[in-house]
């Protein structure tokens, strides 16, 4: 168990393509940090740099206080769970779990004890003598986790470990990973592009975009106060509605809402913050035509076409919607729920 510290980390591929641009991040001991971002944002590269599978062009990475830039993956004492599990196909489950320990010269008795313990925790004891190809996707996933935990490493690195599973299993494994990580208290870095996974697993969430960190914080903080237009659009499903302030003014004829900071070009509003019906004191009233209704069960997502806006607005309505598609809908945006952004910097203004 150890803290991980990245400072000024850069990655340039041969040919001069810089994919990570001077990145700083401190991960506390025992913390679960989730790196999330669209594909190509550098999150997997960053994880692989921590693991030692990619070289570090500039800056330093330290694990447990020691700079590990030039150390081999095995010397960094981290364990990694891969997206496709990367189990050794010719070894039994037991062989897979033992391999890392045997390479480290762990005494036989201790290997057995650790493997037994891991198998019990992950409920894979019945499969210990099978080959990976005789296991289902979920079981292989558990074995991959087992291979990481028997090592008792300083840190776990997860590279989109759940993306090969079906939705139901993914939900189960997510809970299990969270439970396991809490129980073991091992520092973990988890890479995903699934924002639900990111929100639910993270102690702290790191949103990355184009080789930069956009924002770091608790998942709820990021949801409540996205620091940039990118985070606003990336975190939350359905995503935040972003409306140009001039369009909004032209649309409603309303004066500049005084509570918004000067320089606001774009306002954002969460689909679930929008109120049905015409507005009361000071809020902004809009009306539009319902284009599409997505019933999700407990709530419905309404896609409302508003004249003058390029994109349909998304509204989350609680309960079953009694509206019909192509019907007119009046709704209002509470001024207090608006997120103000500057177009030029892409940053939040308050």
């Amino acid at each position: 168990m150890a803290a991980i510290e990245l400072s000024g980390v850069k990655k340039t591929y041969p040919g001069g393509i810089e994919v990570i641009h001077g990145l700083d991040l401190a991960i506390a001991d025992g913390e679960m940090v989730v790196l999330v971002g669209p594909s190509g944002c550098g999150k997997s590269t960053l994880l692989r740099m921590i693991a030692g599978l990619e070289t570090i062009t500039d800056g330093t990475i330290s694990i447990g206080g020691a700079v590990v830039n030039r150390r081999e993956p095995a010397e960094r004492d981290v364990a990694m769970v891969f997206q496709n599990y990367a189990l050794y196909p010719h070894m039994t489950v037991r062989g897979n779990l033992e391999y890392g320990l045997r390479n480290r010269g762990t005494p036989r008795a201790e290997i057995d004890a650790r493997v037994e313990a891991a198998a019990r925790t992950l409920e894979i004891a019945p499969f210990l003598d099978r080959k990976p190809r005789q296991l289902s996707g979920g079981q292989r996933q558990r074995v991959a986790m087992g291979r990481a935990i028997v090592r008792q490493p300083k840190a776990f690195l997860f590279d989109e470990p759940l993306s090969n599973l079906d939705a139901k299993l993914r939900g189960q494994m997510r809970i299990e990973i969270r439970r396991l990580q809490r129980a073991l208290g091992t520092t973990s870095v988890y890479v995903t592009h699934d924002q639900l996974e990111a929100m639910t697993l993270a102690d702290r969430l790191v949103v990355m975009n184009g080789g930069h960190i956009e924002q770091v914080g608790k998942p709820t903080e990021l949801y409540d106060r996205p620091a940039s237009l990118f985070v606003a659009g990336f975190i939350g499903s359905p995503p935040m509605n972003l409306i140009d302030i001039e369009t909004l003014r032209a649309l409603t004829g309303a004066a500049f809402p005084p509570s918004l900071p000067v320089g606001t070009d774009i306002v954002g509003i969460r689909p679930d913050a929008i109120m049905m019906g015409p507005a009361g004191g000071g809020d902004i009233s809009i009306s539009g035509v319902v284009e599409l209704i997505e019933p999700v069960g407990g709530e419905s997502h309404l896609y409302v076409r508003v004249a003058g806006l390029d994109q349909a607005m998304v509204i989350v309505a609680q309960g079953r919607s009694v509206l019909s598609e192509t019907g007119r809908l009046d709704f209002s945006l509470p001024v207090a729920a608006l997120h103000p952004f500057s177009r030029a910097t892409g940053k939040r203004l308050r």
């Binding site: 693991a51 095995a74 496709n84 189990l87 050794y88 010719h90 391999y99 890392g100 390479n103």
Partner: peptide
Amino acid sequence: PDELMEAARVDGAGPMKFFRDILLPL
């Protein structure tokens, strides 16, 4: 898959060990 080699590296297998323990049996 490359991940097999990477997993072996993380598991502490050097090039010869990877060759002997993983590539040869495969």
